[in-house]
Amino acid sequence: MSIKNRVALMTKSSQNKESIKLVRLAPYFGTLMFGGILILFSFTSPYFLTFGNLSNILLQSSIVGVASLGMVYVIIVGGDDVIQGGIDLSCAAFIGLTATVTAFFLSRGHSLVISVTLGILITVFGGICNGIGVVYGIRPLLMTLGMGAVVTSADLIFSNNRQILIENKFFEWLRDATYYGLGIAVYIYLFTFLILFSLFHGTSIGIRAYAVGGNSTAALISGIKTKKYIFNSYVVSAVCASISGILILARLSSSTPRAGDIILLDVILASFMSVIFSRRFMPNLAGVFVSAIFIATLSNAFTLLNFPSYWTSGIKGVIILVIVATRSKRSWVK
């Protein structure tokens, strides 16, 4: 291919007939895919489409979902470039730390309010450190990687690498109580989503956050306090992670050291997968809300279909690749 051809290809790529058809369909692709998979599973297992099972899926998605809501905020504000852009790898460690610290103080006989507050505060402090580091100029990937190591260490120190069992009325209520058939965790997930969503799209925060993520210099020049937005995103992510930590503590009735590590990949996946539910292929809050449920649906359906558990992650991987491949019109040659 000559250089002339390459330039021509570059300039007219958007006028390509074929791509126009696909682009029209693409925005709905994620939704179609999700719908298709729901229908497919409802044929294969009679239990899948029962209310009990659907509420179970929502419950399973809540822990990953809440943490993903914070993560996607970081990705939106930092830009979705994976290496240079925003990402919070310490979120898994934060989830574990909140659970451990809360359980630690509860088991020492401190009151519920104090324990939960301390658990959340210590995590928020970590988030503040992340924010300061990133605003100062350290790459988010590395700042949060380093913070993750520090926080995991703190988790081990508090828990002494042991499981801490808790017996508390509040956590039992959090685990067992249901209203209208849905667990408390689902309401917390929904509530967190609604608060963030209304703040994001009801005020100018959302559009400014996208501006900072898209081109931070342009955003700065047009009068947005970019540093404030970046800093806040890490604090929000830490708060969301700590809520997730409380939920995981309630669910297991005990804190296991490094409990968050196993869900880190799911959290990252839900955040990046949100782009397939968006018309402009941007990470977005509503997309994350659906993605987390989507991921939980896959796990749930495979369990119902009696797949051995070690097949699940592979099938998840394939399905995600298929979805992402079909939507990726945003080519790597921009």
Partner: peptide, 16 residues
Amino acid sequence: YLKISPFLATLGTLYI
């Protein structure tokens, strides 16, 4: 060929 971003593509490979 499928033009998936390296992060997601290799994450998928990791899962598999």
